[in-house]
């Protein structure tokens, strides 16, 4: 592995309040410098919470966080005040799902990018504006000089997401977090943004954690995939390994549910039931109630983590079993 960029050790995130939710349970994850990782999972699996924890965006009063997070050698969970401000944006930044909600409607897009640059770099307004212009050019926005003075409502969805990416990358972060950045976009625009992110990643050499529920999107952007279920990583490996040789029954179910190459009229191999509510911390395999291979041991204790090769892991008792021809 290349030099470490993100090192998450035994992360627990629990939301307290009217009801308790164990959103992340004992999550360990590593990312090297310049690597792209897709966090793949369904709603409620904890993928967005992981990103927000990395940026310390969760409400402190209602969140209990345990474990350790290091990004580029910085201990993220102890940051506060100025150091936290400097960390957000300069070291790590984020692209959200709805650019129209993430941008401020009363400032031009150029002013918003320039503001971020001035905050972090302390340069003059003019210099910051020219950085903003350069960023719009890099995200391939046509006629960037004119777009610099546009307000968010004057831009289309795809264009706004490009602006959002320009804003996130303006201070050259080492790590980019992307939370379903193409889910709200049309198909023909989605593929443009995915390819743009791929190019920019190569150009800037940053690490990327890309949250998505769409396997196809994960395949297009990432070199590694981590599959999440009920606040835990159930399977991790390179994109090739996870897609071509999925070992966890949940990953296999997801692949089947993607309908790729399923004949018309054929019955779908659907995963029965629904994800658990996570009101209590899982003491056994969370997927066992829905798993076709579940046995008593799965319901009794947490599953063992198999590590067939370095940086490949599967949290399942059946990980070594031959893949059945379902």
């Amino acid at each position: 592995m290349k030099e470490s960029l993100v090192d998450i050790q035994n992360l627990d995130v629990r939301f307290t309040g009217a009801r308790t939710v164990h959103a992340i349970n004992d999550l360990t994850l590593n990312l090297g410098q310049g690597e792209t990782l897709a966090l793949l999972g369904e709603s409620g699996s904890g993928k967005s919470v992981t990103l927000k924890t990395l940026l310390r965006l969760l409400p402190p009063k209602r969140t209990e966080i345990g474990g350790k997070i290091q990004v580029n050698g910085t201990d993220v969970l102890t940051l506060s005040g100025k150091a936290l401000q400097q960390y957000r944006g300069a070291e790590v930044s984020m692209v959200f799902q709805e650019p129209a909600l993430a941008l401020d409607p009363v400032y031009s897009v150029g002013a918003q990018i320039a503001e971020a640059v001035r905050r972090h770099k302390g340069i003059s307004r003019d210099e910051a504006m020219s950085t903003a212009l350069d960023m719009l050019r890099r995200v391939r926005i046509p006629s960037p000089e004119r777009r610099l003075r546009n307000f968010p409502h004057e831009l289309s969805g795809g264009m706004l997401q490009r602006v959002m990416i320009a804003l996130a990358l303006a201070c050259r972060p080492r790590l980019l977090l992307a939370d379903e950045p193409t889910t709200a976009l049309d198909a023909t625009v989605q593929i443009q943004i995915l390819l743009l992110l791929r190019e920019l990643q190569r150009e800037f050499g940053m690490g990327v954690i890309f949250v998505t529920h769409d396997i196809g999107v994960a395949v297009e952007v990432s070199e590694r995939i981590a599959v999440m279920y009920a606040g835990q990583i159930v399977e991790e490996g390179t994109t090739q390994e996870v897609i071509k040789d999925p070992r966890h029954p949940y990953t296999r179910g997801l692949m089947a549910a993607n309908l790729h190459g399923v004949a018309r009229g054929e019955r779908l191999n659907a995963i029965p039931g629904a994800p658990p509510s996570l009101e209590t911390r899982p003491a056994a395999c969370s997927f066992a109630p829905r798993c076709p291979l579940a046995e008593d041991a799965c319901r009794a204790t947490l599953p063992p983590v198999h590590v067939p090769s370095p940086r490949r892991r599967i949290a399942c008792i059946h990980a070594n079993a031959p893949v059945s021809a379902e």
Binding site: M159, D186, A187, Q192, L194, L195, G216, V219, T239, Q240
Partner: peptide, 25 residues
């Protein structure tokens, strides 16, 4: 044709090289 080729590839060995269309509808 563009709409169909804008579907993300499911095979890591044949990823999309070039977006079929530019711009938004």
């Amino acid at each position: 044709g563009s709409l169909f080729s804008a579907m993300p590839s499911m095979d890591p060995d044949t990823r999309t090289k070039k977006p079929p269309l530019t711009g938004d509808p």
